[in-house]
Design a protein around this nucleic acid. Structure first.
Lengths: 118, 118
DNA sequence: TGCAAACCCCAGTGGAGAACCGGAGTATAC
DNA sequence: GTATACTCCGGTTCTCCACTGGGGTTTGCA
């Protein structure tokens, strides 16, 4: 798909989407075809890409981001540990969720909507 | 304890800490004693206060914060759902963690440090 | 071959929210 | 009565994210 199409469908400024896709490309999640009739395509199958891959890529997940600036008191270290657990819990949720899952969920929801409409 | 003591120990500007404590007080998590020899104390026992109480109080957890601005497309709703799951996972971790737990962890860590020091 | 359409890179802007002062006021132990 | 604490409120940075702009380079196609 081309940036313009995605931007129009999802209502995102195309210049901004361009940056996001460039980041995803550098992380090897999508591939790009330059030139006229170019565009983007997924680098892997939809069930082999998790939300964790995407999120950790565009929002650079420094696992130790807060550890560095803590004065390493006993309290600070304990707090860091808990935050680490929270982050871990969130990450496992994202890791279990693939693009394929999202797609299926969307289709299921659309089916539901149609039934309600009838 | 008095604001000054906490601020000095944790290396936080006292005027800022004052605001945070005021928020906690309004949420009923701490009580305050005014006047000379005044200060703050926990409103409940340490094992009856969870990290979730604290975090959701000072950083007002709008459960539906992102739902309102999504154009409610099928995609947007699915994304909201996943985010809701992530948030839920993080919250359960915080809900399981009481101040008493943190205290015990800190003490355990301090014991460890002493042993290493020997 | 020319050119338009697409991707590519980099630098900067704007706004929202968190972190952080400052001043003036009020309650209370001593 | 007074010093010491909390209390309220407004303003000031500071940082991060969403977003914009102006240049490229690559490539399909007439």
């Amino acid at each position: 798909m081309q940036i313009r199409q995605i931007a129009a469908q999802q209502n995102i400024p195309d210049r901004y989407l361009e940056q996001l896709l460039a980041t995803l490309r550098r992380a090897g999640l999508v591939r790009s075809q330059r030139g006229a009739r170019g565009g983007y395509l997924l680098a892997r199958d939809p069930w082999k890409i998790t939300l964790y891959d995407i999120v950790s890529c565009i929002e650079g997940f420094d696992t130790q981001a807060d550890t560095e600036k803590q004065p390493s008191t006993a309290e600070g270290l304990v707090i860091s540990d808990v935050w680490q657990e929270v982050r871990q819990a969130a990450e496992t949720v994202l890791q279990k969720c693939t693009l394929q899952d999202l797609l299926e969920r969307r289709n299921a929801r659309q089916q539901l909507d149609i039934m309600y409409y009838i």
